[in-house]
């Protein structure tokens, strides 16, 4: 029988590991569009963390900013500049 406390902290630990994998993939990916997608996955994990860590105010400001506006701004940037890191696809 798992206690509620262990369950909640287990979800937190899983979110931490998910965000770590997503951050790693975002930083290592050469296709910048895919990097933005991985960054959005990391933001979603952080949003759930804010919810579980009892910060509803931060959740309300973080969801529009980090899941909505950040990817949109970076996508505008990629559209206006270049898509692949280190020149075009080899």
């Amino acid at each position: 029988m798992i206690s509620p406390e262990t369950l909640v902290f287990g979800v937190l630990a899983a979110l931490g590991l998910i965000s770590m994998v997503a951050t790693f993939m975002a930083v290592m990916e050469r296709d910048l569009l895919k990097a933005v997608l991985f960054s959005a996955v990391q933001s979603t994990a952080y949003a759930f963390m804010f919810y579980i860590l009892m910060a509803p105010d931060i959740l309300l400001v973080y969801v529009p900013v980090a899941v909505g506006l950040y990817p949109a701004v970076i996508l505008f940037l990629i559209k206006k500049t270049e898509r692949f890191e280190g020149g075009e696809e080899e």
Partner: peptide
């Protein structure tokens, strides 16, 4: 990482 866009993404993270 060499790309300025990648640097911005990493900075937000």
């Amino acid at each position: 990482r060499p790309s300025l866009v990648k640097k911005i993404i990493a900075l937000t993270i």
